[in-house]
Every structure is written in C-alpha cells, then in structure tokens.
C-alpha cells in the first residue's frame, strides 16, 4: 500500500536555518530516503517553496477566485512530502520516525494512505 508522509513545520523557523544547517538536515533525511530506496519502496519526494510563493484558487458557485498565499493561514505549514510503498501502517510509521530523528525539534509528519496515484513522467 502506498503511503504519503506529509511534512509540517513552522516555515519561519525553517527559514532561519543557515545554508549549512539546511544542507546538513537534507543530507540526514537523504540517508533515510536511501534506506527506503535500497528496499525499492521509495516513491516521489518533493520539497515545496515557502507559502509566500503560493497562490490559491478557491472554488465558488461561479468563476473561481484567486487568492495570494496558502489555502489556510496556519501555525505550521505543509512543506513537502514523501510517497513510500509500505506493507503496513507500522512500517510507514517507522519510516516517519526515522525522518523525525533525522530532523528533530518542532513540527510533525502526517501519514496518509494514498488513494489514486499517477506515477510521474517528469523523472
């Protein structure tokens, strides 16, 4: 079963990391990713740019309207995701736990089973 592991954190706090701190964190997360890759379980991975660069399209009964910014103003923002092929929730949670250890502190990971999945053609 495919699971999405959704990454949430305070993007303002993440933005205070120096380039070295950010690189070091990404390197630690990369190792966790490599572990899943070695087992052939790693799907697409994405890190999103800050919500200040987001645009939201809200549906209305007529013409949808466009809002500058994210879908909702929240304390923690959706910053990226992993898709992994896990045998059980247990395994998906173990993966998320490894990610949390590689990137300790505030924030969290939401583990959500994937319904429909179109594999990427972007490579």
């Amino acid at each position: 079963m495919l699971y999405a592991v959704l990454c949430y954190n305070d993007e303002n706090a993440v933005a205070t990391w120096s380039k070295e701190e950010d690189d070091a964190c990404m390197a630690r997360l990369g190792k966790v990713e490599d572990g899943m890759k070695a087992k052939g379980k790693m799907g697409p991975v994405a890190r999103l740019l800050p919500t200040t660069s987001a645009t939201t399209l809200r549906k209305t009964s007529g013409e949808p309207f466009i809002i500058d910014g994210p879908f909702a103003e929240t304390k923690e923002q959706f910053l990226g995701f992993y898709i992994a092929d896990c045998d059980s929730l247990e395994e998906a949670m173990a993966f998320a736990k490894d990610l949390a250890e590689a990137n300790p502190g505030a924030g969290g990971y939401e583990i959500r089973p994937v319904g429909i999945f179109h594999p990427s053609e972007l490579g």
């Binding site: 706090a13 993440v14 205070t16 300790p104 502190g105």
Partner: peptide, 15 residues
C-alpha cells in the same frame, strides 16, 4: 547541539 538548534530557530522566528 542538534537538540537545541530547533529552539534557537523557534526563538529567532518568533522574535
């Protein structure tokens, strides 16, 4: 100091 790095980040962000 990895343990406390996030506190420093949170304090800077909240400042």
């Amino acid at each position: 100091m990895v343990d406390n790095a996030w506190i420093a980040a949170a304090l800077t962000a909240a400042r």
